Structure formats: structure tokens, C-alpha cells
Amino acid sequence: MDRTERFYKIELLLRSRGCVSFDALLEELGVSRATLKRDLQYLRDRLSAPIVYDRFDNGYRFDAAPGAAGRHELPGLWFSEKEIHALLTMHQLMAGLDDDGVLARHLQPMMDKLQGMLGADESEARELMRRVKVIVTARRRSPSRYFELLGSALVQRRRVWLRYFKRSDRSTSEREVSPQRLVNHRNTWYLDAWCHGSEGLRRFALDAVQDARALDTRARNVAIRDLEAELDAGYGIYGGGDAKLKWATLVFDADAAQWVAGEEWHARQKSRWLDDGRYELQVPYSDPTELTMDILRHGDRVVVVGDRALALAIKARLAKALAQYR
């Protein structure tokens, strides 16, 4: 049996028998004493298995002392789809944060822990990361020095001075903000913060921060529920508050419906199948920018109904795009 199988076997024996002697483990596994010692050490050090030696019973068992970890499960390929996506995405996010080594000293312990969770040894973890691919498109990389500074200010509850470039009107402004939350949306990092100049919550793209400096002033605190109500109620990164919300009704043709019916566009979306096989999706929005982009992605497979302003905006964008291909 290979090492991964031995790990499973050790886990099973300790869980089913409670306490197992070293000689009994040797007999069950059919390996040398040195190999078994290495396996037990690896389970403890790399996979965080709470295995202890019980001198009274002369055997090994899982630690049942107060404060010890609960039921231990070996990592590996039996993760669910959501779990394996979460682990690999987390690994990829952390790997992508640091291009110049600034954060390596902070991230390496977490990277090592994730790698240990992804496979029984380093080679297995690397193999898994090659066999399961998370594709990222249109990713905007943020300067890692600002991510570290803003993350530290967020944890320490300190205000930050920013020089920020606003893409919509190509203007630059200086602001004093109180960081509230870091958000990763479509593989791009944003900072949710209270802007002391405009006296309101704002969302800043980290890659548009031209300069940043931590201040000694204590940050203003905004309750998470207020933050979510203000910035998360609408569609995508342009959340907006409940007071600004409108609902868009989108009807997809029967072909597109087979795909869209399995997608979550918004946590509060409403949907239903129509009698002719089409699919109706309703989503809340305040700013139509991101919603418009997602609607245009489906081309002639979707139509906006009941929202004349949004429908005209989509029509105008399609007409402008068509004019460029004459």
C-alpha cells in the first residue's frame, strides 16, 4: 500500500479502536518501524492530525484533551466541488497577491497550510493543482504594497489617506477614509470604506489607488449590516442601497435558458420557467453598468422587459456596436 493509503488506514484504526499500539499498527500496515514513525510524524506536522502517545495504554490515539481539535479528517480528492474550488481559489488568490515578494513572509505559512490540505505530500499537492484548473479572465492586478497597507489599516482600525484615480471621468482626488472591508469581485480587489470628505460609504478599486498612507487617527466604524445594506443590495460591484434599487426583468430564449437557469446573478434574484421553455430572471440593481455588461454578453439570446430605461440603454449599446462593423 502507498503512503496515502497508509494515512487512511492509520486514521481509520485510531478512530475505530480508540488507542492502537505501535506493534499493532506495524502489523496492520506491513511497513518498517522507521516508515511508521515517519508517517505518524507527517500526520502530526503537515496534516495537523492530533495524534498523541498514551503511556498508560501504551498506544496512539487522537487527543481528547480540552482545547484539542475536533474530529480529524484527512485532506484529499474527496473534497466536494465547492470545497475544492474554495481551496484552489484561495491558493490562487494568495499566490497572485504578491509579485515582488513584499507579502511572502506573511503568506508563506498560509500557503504551506493550504498545500498540506490539498494533498498528502508536496508532489501530490502540485499534481492536484495541475489537474484542477481555476481559469481567471480579465484580472486586474493591484500593487501589493497598497494591499498590505490597506489590509493592516483595516485590522488595526486606522484611517488612511488615498490618492485615487476615478476612471469614469478620469479625475484624481485625495481622500481620507476609514477602511471597513476588503472585497474580491471577479478577481479584482476593492476596498469598502467610509469617505470622510463625502460623508458616506464608498467602494475603491485597489488598482486605481495611486498612493496611500496610513494615518494615526482612529477609523470610524460602520456596522457590517449597514455596510451590506448600503453596498451589497444591488447588482455586482455597483451595489447601492435599498432606497435606490430597481428590479430588472430579463427573459432568455430556450437555448440560453439551459445555461442561465443554473447561474446565480444575485443572492436575492427571482426566477421562473415560462411555458414556452424560456427563462425569466429578475435581479435588483441601482447602477446599470455591470448589469448592462452581463446582459450584452448574451447578445440576442435575452431581452429586457418592463424596464424601458434599461432596455433603451441596451438598445443604444447594441446599435453603437453594430455601427462599428459597417
Score class of each variant (00 low, 15 high):
148 E>I: 13
173 S>P: 01
140 R>E: 15
151 G>E: 11
147 F>M: 14
152 S>C: 11
154 L>T: 00
151 G>S: 14
174 E>K: 13
163 R>I: 09
150 L>T: 04
142 S>E: 12
148 E>R: 15
173 S>L: 15
156 Q>C: 02
164 Y>P: 06
144 S>P: 11
154 L>I: 08
168 S>K: 01
173 S>F: 10
168 S>E: 06
163 R>C: 08
153 A>E: 02
162 L>K: 03
172 T>F: 10
159 R>P: 00
170 R>C: 11
165 F>K: 10
171 S>R: 06
168 S>M: 05
148 E>M: 15
140 R>W: 09
154 L>E: 00
141 R>E: 12
150 L>K: 08
158 R>N: 02
170 R>M: 13
154 L>G: 01
141 R>P: 04
163 R>Y: 04
177 V>Q: 03
168 S>P: 00
157 R>I: 00
147 F>C: 08
151 G>W: 14
155 V>Q: 13
160 V>M: 10
166 K>T: 09
157 R>F: 01
158 R>I: 00
165 F>H: 15
164 Y>W: 07
141 R>C: 05
158 R>V: 01
144 S>A: 12
162 L>G: 00
141 R>K: 13
169 D>S: 07
160 V>W: 08
171 S>L: 10
172 T>D: 08
141 R>A: 13
156 Q>K: 11
169 D>I: 08
142 S>D: 09
146 Y>W: 15
174 E>S: 13
151 G>K: 13
155 V>C: 10
178 S>F: 04
159 R>D: 07
159 R>A: 04
145 R>L: 03
178 S>Y: 05
162 L>F: 05
147 F>L: 15
161 W>P: 00
140 R>L: 15
167 R>Y: 11
177 V>C: 03
161 W>G: 00
165 F>T: 06
148 E>V: 14
